[in-house]
Write a protein that binds this DNA or RNA. Structure first.
Lengths: 186, 186
DNA sequence: AAATCTATTTGACAAATGTCAAATAATGAA
DNA sequence: TTCATTATTTGACATTTGTCAAATAGATTT
């Protein structure tokens, strides 16, 4: 299932939506370290990870900060830019050789114009990612670095094997050294 | 303008939407300290603040944590519960005597069934609040407590005069004592 | 395998923030 | 106004996390 966030919606409606979305999806292979999106430009695509792993990141005081990871069946884009049509501060980078499906903003916009009944699913998608984000805020506010780390490991067990420690560290808002120390604690 | 987040959309479309939404809006007066929503129940309303101020909060290890403030023209709900139709961890409390407009989930659902063209506006609304939330995450991750405080003061200057320090402190993720010290620094 | 590059860990110390208790200030009720 | 309650500030100290430098471990290339 590609639109992971829509998995609970009515299946027959969804089938039609998928058919229409298939038409505007473009599948492509990319190598590790390639950028799907570069900062300073408007992000015109929503990416679905079919195989592989991607992260969005940006630079804060010269430091590379991971904002989001996406693995198989997940989605990623420079969300602020994709929504607001303004230049993005984010880069999107592949951390493994990957198979990526991309949907252009324009195509999606056109499809929604043509079939406004799909707005509902976009709305549901947004609701889901909003909830995810709200949970992340709670996490940052009310859990220690160790708790955040444990929670991430639990929710995405094999992320650690696939991603550098420094990316995990910046994602949970701590330095690499602190994360290293946390891991060795019993 | 009540739907603050929709202010950039096409005005003629919006006028019709507003007319329809007016029909499902209920205006009510509440006193300071009243709860618009109580934790442990499903939140069935979206609230618009016409006059006054509200906050959503919950308890973490016995401590009262503010998740969100809403002042005039803003919206508030127990968003996780409103979206997912499950019991909420949040309470919504009024911090002043207030005039509140409420929209029931059911009425909104029915209206969207009847006029699916409005889905688009809900989508835009969600996009906007998603961006707000994403900014809040960046804020928490990459700004010091003092920077977060200054930013809040700048974005909502009179919040301080209207809200207890402890609520501001928990909102920006620090203790009341730390906030008190931050404020006296030059 | 050796050399090189990259990732992770460790040490020593500094800075930021938290905790708990108490003092002071502000507010609201009698 | 006075008293009682609530809000804010301050002090002393503990804990968490950051910074910078160096050491070690692991991976990749030759």
């Amino acid at each position: 299932m590609i639109f992971e966030k829509l998995k609970d919606v009515n299946e027959s409606d969804l089938a039609e939506l998928l058919t229409d979305f298939q038409k505007i999806m473009k599948r492509e292979s990319f190598s590790k370290k390639e950028l799907l999106h570069k900062e300073g430009t408007v992000c015109n695509h929503l990416f679905l990870i079919e195989k592989g792993i991607a992260r969005s990141f940006y630079y804060k005081d010269g430091k590379d900060i991971t904002a989001h990871f996406a693995i198989e069946n997940g989605t990623i884009t420079a969300i602020d830019s994709f929504i607001q049509r303004k230049n993005s501060r984010y880069n999107i980078e592949l951390l493994e050789d990957s198979e990526i499906i991309s949907i252009s903003h324009q195509d999606m916009h056109d499809l929604l114009q043509e079939k406004p009944q799909y707005e509902k699913y976009i709305r549901i998608f947004l609701e889901q990612i909003y909830i995810d984000l709200a949970e992340r805020i709670e996490d940052l506010l009310f859990h220690t670095a160790k708790e955040r780390y444990d929670k991430l490991v639990e929710s995405t067990p094999n992320l650690l094997q696939r991603v550098n420690l420094k990316h995990i560290a910046s994602y949970i808002g701590i330095t690499q050294e602190t994360l290293s120390r946390i891991r060795t604690q019993v």
